[in-house]
Design a binder for these strands. Structure first.
Length: 108
DNA sequence: CTGATGACGTGTG
DNA sequence: ACACACGCCATCA
């Protein structure tokens, strides 16, 4: 049984539409704790494989957590399949693919 | 309860 | 622009 915080994070990540990406900070902010970005990443560490964690990157648009994937290269592969260009573990036009969780979260 | 860790973010030099 | 340091929040030992 995971903590409510984890479930909150997972819920938002599951809501990320295909072809879109978001940041840990944005998720943390949507949960009401803009500085809990670290904890968001921790939740990802315990995330289920059904969770599209590959759509969650840091504020740089960089795939910092790709090493936690299986295999790590699958992260960029999945993003590429969704139309997101990833070069050198960096999302191109990141701002264009950015998806704001708060826009859909709306005090859920 | 205290200390350490981390898939982050921001500030300073 | 790059490198380093601190803070932030939640979890683990």
């Amino acid at each position: 049984m995971a903590s409510d915080f984890f479930e909150q994070v997972w819920a938002i990540v599951k809501l990320i539409p295909p072809g879109r990406v978001t940041t840990y900070g944005a998720i943390a902010k949507a949960l009401g704790s803009p500085a809990a970005s670290r904890s968001v990443g921790y939740a990802m560490n315990a995330c289920d494989k059904s969770l599209p964690a590959h759509r969650v990157v840091n504020r740089n648009g960089r795939l910092t957590g790709k090493v936690h994937f299986n295999p790590p290269s699958s992260m960029a592969e999945r993003l590429a399949l969704e139309g997101i260009i990833v070069i050198n573990d960096e999302i191109q036009h990141f701002k264009n693919h950015f998806w704001d969780p708060g826009k859909e979260w709306q005090s859920m």
